[in-house]
Design a protein around this nucleic acid. Structure first.
Ligand SMILES: [Mn+2]
Ligand SMILES: [Mn+2]
Ligand SMILES: [Zn+2]
Ligand SMILES: [Zn+2]
Lengths: 142, 142
DNA sequence: GGGTACAATGAGAATGATTATCGTTATTTT
DNA sequence: AAAATAACGATAATCATTCTCATTGTACCC
């Protein structure tokens, strides 16, 4: 957790409790180790018996984000990947081959407070990614 | 400019010079103050007389990124926005209304060296964004 | 319980940015 | 200049995401 206020201190949205489907989505997300797409979440949930529609997965993810429980980042090819918000994980992505490798730490961990003060904006989470060319691609013809 | 090696020191791609169309795309990009989509770039270039296809705009942008001259970030609704790489600009984006406001500084400026050493990966640029809920949206019914 | 208002859901259509095709045109090489 | 290669343009295809709208579930009141 980096730049994020206490989730209970701000609630721009539903004070009500999560629905069953929304819970299913969140639980599945917490199960998995890596960040996953909505499409994959949908497929996996159906496979394990859950009965829900794709639209509901997207809707649930949006609501969970608005509650500060889920975050997302976008891959190089435009697909959104979701993960529980506690994972403060960033990536190095190769512009050539598209592969991305996780960074071992978050360079922003020490600036939380400074950022909290600086804006009239309730910050839930951040995304940070580095782009360049990976080792293999460097030694390769265009 | 933050975490970025000298663009001339690495060239995983074409050592050749830029084509006319590629130059046109880059020039147009440098003209504009804000980050723009490929679609808009295409429209504006045609309007001002340039004759090129949409596919070429996308192709050129990819090549320019591979040369370390252009960078991109993805908006909340999945559209890629491009800008000349020298702009070290980041945003705060509202999960509710989708608006984003520019951050006045880059919190990473002081960690360049540390990051350069830490990975066998040639870093061209980074993207950093904060997500949360903006002031207006906070005082608003769902 | 039965009734009503409203939120949540699902199936499938619509959207729209990005990518793939493929024939044509410019550039480089021999 | 002919051949080989790289760029290009028009358009079709892809595919994640959003929209539509009919159906179902839930909360609250009588
Ligand atoms: Mn972080
Ligand atoms: Mn920066
Ligand atoms: Zn690579
Ligand atoms: Zn907002």
């Amino acid at each position: 957790m980096t730049v994020m206020l206490d989730p209970s201190s701000h609630s721009p949205l539903p004070t009500t409790r999560l629905t069953t489907k929304q819970k299913a989505v969140l639980t599945q997300l917490e199960q998995l180790q890596e960040a996953v797409s909505a499409q994959r979440l949908y497929t996996e949930l159906r496979q394990q018996g859950e009965s829900l529609g794709l639209a509901t997965v997207y809707r649930s993810l949006d609501l969970l984000k608005l509650r500060g429980l889920v975050q997302s980042r976008t891959t190089a090819d435009g697909e959104a990947l979701y993960s529980p918000i506690q994972q403060d994980q960033h990536y190095l992505t190769c512009l050539q081959c598209g592969n991305s490798v996780p960074l071992g730490f978050c360079p922003l961990q020490k600036m939380e407070n400074q950022l909290r003060r600086s804006q009239a904006f309730t910050i839930y989470y951040h995304t940070l990614e580095f782009f360049g060319v990976c080792e293999p691609c460097t030694h390769q013809a265009p």
